[in-house]
């Protein structure tokens, strides 16, 4: 872990370094941030070195798919898959939607709401998918579905365990029913990896709701979640409108679903890498022992 943090520091998250000479007010502000939960004033660098976890209150801020990849993989082992699959506008929602897609591509350096590929974790090869909430709210359209399908199919072909980190508000509405059907096809691929006897681990991060929660996210052999992530099928606002009352505090959080029996463990971000590595080594202990990474 320490080595990993060192590395994170060395490579440096992609944020402007403080100017050692004179800091203008703007530059100073550019280096500081406030915790979204306890409002503690933190150096951006401190927060990023801590993987987005507030040192004061342990609030887990959202981090990018790229940061998460660094957190869960060995350095320089990632090979991206299917970056060239691009969303279209199949129902003709119009230019505004296409522009939003283009903007999110620039903003996230991803081409859709999930980053997929292969890497190693503590030397063990694995297939990994990481959803990015900043790309259209992590919404699942045809590209997300196709990438998850290809990820799981390649994992089977190459005999790799698969890990998927979810973060999604649900369906890509602009793809209409094509979007809904991604729930069926991703689930069908999960069934295949189940039958292939390969581990499929999911890590639910804030938020994981609706169509993604009700398909590949909740179908892991082991379902892990980050602390206080919002998880569930229906959104809180819809529920409140339906039942005409306020929801109790802590409703639909990972801790809530841990208690209700729907997730295996709530794992704080700094421990996630080690937990994942251990679970994979245990699940792969049997039949994968001598399997060579065929890729």
């Amino acid at each position: 872990m320490a080595r990993f943090l060192d590395k994170l520091r060395k490579q440096g998250p992609k944020v402007a370094r403080p100017n050692k000479k004179v800091l203008s007010v703007a530059q100073t502000e550019a280096n500081w941030t406030k915790c979204a939960s306890c409002a503690a004033v933190l150096r951006k660098k401190t927060l990023e070195d801590a993987l987005g976890v507030c040192p004061e209150c342990a609030h887990h801020h959202k981090i990018t798919a790229w940061q998460r990849l660094e957190m869960l993989s060995d350095p320089d082992t990632f090979e991206e898959w299917d970056r060239n699959l691009l969303s279209q506008d199949p129902l003709g929602f119009g230019q505004e939607y296409l522009e939003k897609l283009a903007k999110d591509r620039t903003k996230t350096k991803l081409t859709d709401a999930v980053l997929t590929g292969r890497c190693t974790l503590d030397g063990r090869p694995m297939a990994i998918g990481i959803m990015e909430f900043r790309f259209r709210g992590g919404s699942m359209g045809s590209v997300v579905g196709e990438r998850i399908n290809r990820l799981l199919e390649r994992a089977i072909e190459k005999r790799l365990p698969a890990v998927v980190v979810t973060s999604s508000g649900g369906a890509r509405m602009q793809e209409g029913m094509l979007s809904l059907m991604q729930m069926a096809r991703t689930s069908a691929a999960v069934r295949r990896i189940n039958e292939a006897g390969l581990p499929y681990i999911t890590i639910l991060t804030d938020p994981t709701t609706a169509g993604v929660a009700a398909s590949f996210a909740s179908l892991g052999d082991v379902v892990l979640a980050e602390p206080k992530a919002i998880i569930g099928f229906s959104g809180a606002r819809v529920i409140e409108q339906t039942i005409r009352q306020k929801l109790p505090p802590g409703f639909q959080t990972s801790e809530f679903y841990l208690e209700k029996g729907f997730i295996d463990r709530v794992v704080p971000r700094p421990e996630m890498r080690q937990t994942l590595s251990t679970i994979l080594s245990l699940l792969c202990g049997g039949h994968l022992k001598n399997a060579k990474d065929k890729g």
């Binding site: 729930m183 069926a184 689930s187 069908a188 999960v190 069934r191 709701t209 609706a210 929660a213 009700a214 398909s215 590949f216 996210a217 909740s218 179908l219 998880i231 569930g232 099928f233 229906s234 959104g235 819809v238 529920i239 339906t242 039942i243 929801l247 109790p248 409703f251 639909q252 679903y257 209700k260 029996g261 729907f262």
Partner: peptide, 19 residues
């Protein structure tokens, strides 16, 4: 979309049925 439905794992029930 109800409290009890969510409490009893609506998302898991749907996913498992689809699977």
């Amino acid at each position: 979309p109800g409290i009890v439905a969510e409490e009893r794992g609506q998302f898991e029930a749907i996913a498992s049925s689809i699977l």
